[in-house]
């Protein structure tokens, strides 16, 4: 495995390219970046005084495996996914990237902050979806694969009417 600072640079590059791919709605290219074991998790958050209690165990808005994501993409491609007709115009800004080694030699942990700006419909003001991502990336010969994403949305009450976009 490469040195962690090298990996940091590569991971940040991976996240930036991934963000561009999603903004350009190249969902099949994005799908190819997902590990077969992908666990894509968007927990439910509640207002609590202790941070540790803000995410009730096992409560999620979304918890997808690869087959779920495949269905979501097929849905978006159907042209009848009305939540995304016309598709949201998005900008994902990714920063505060931190990389750490894990117990597994081929897996690194990448924590980042992501602000997703989403303009739906035609002329409505856009929604902002702020997210802290906790990712696991698998390091392979041909680059990274996204193995796990836990997307912690800052809102307890979501301020966008649906999660028709990937976080």
């Amino acid at each position: 495995m490469k040195k962690i600072h090298e990996l940091h640079e590569h991971a940040a590059d991976f996240l930036a390219r991934e963000a561009l791919m999603l903004d350009e709605r190249r969902f099949r290219d994005w799908f190819a970046l997902l590990d077969d074991e992908i666990d894509y998790d968007v927990p439910i958050r509640i207002a609590m005084r202790n941070y540790a209690e803000e995410f009730p165990p096992g409560a999620f808005r979304i918890k997808d495996c690869k087959a779920h994501i495949q269905t979501r993409i097929a849905r978006l491609e159907s042209d009848h996914a009305w939540a995304e007709v016309p598709p949201s115009r998005t900008l994902r800004v990714v920063g505060s990237v931190m990389v750490d080694a894990t117990e597994r030699a081929d897996v690194i942990e990448v924590v980042s902050a992501m602000i997703l700006y989403r303009q739906r419909g035609h002329d409505d003001p856009g929604d902002v979806i702020p997210v802290r991502r906790h990712d696991l990336l698998r390091v392979s010969e041909d680059g990274f694969r996204l193995l796990k994403r836990k997307a912690l949305i800052t809102h307890a009450v979501l301020q966008t009417p649906n999660l028709g976009v990937f976080l």
Binding site: V42, R75, A83, V85, P161, N162, L163
Partner: peptide, 11 residues
């Protein structure tokens, strides 16, 4: 909120 049915109702 990410449900593949309910999303479209919200729209």
């Amino acid at each position: 909120s990410g449900g593949i049915f309910e999303q479209d109702d919200t729209a």
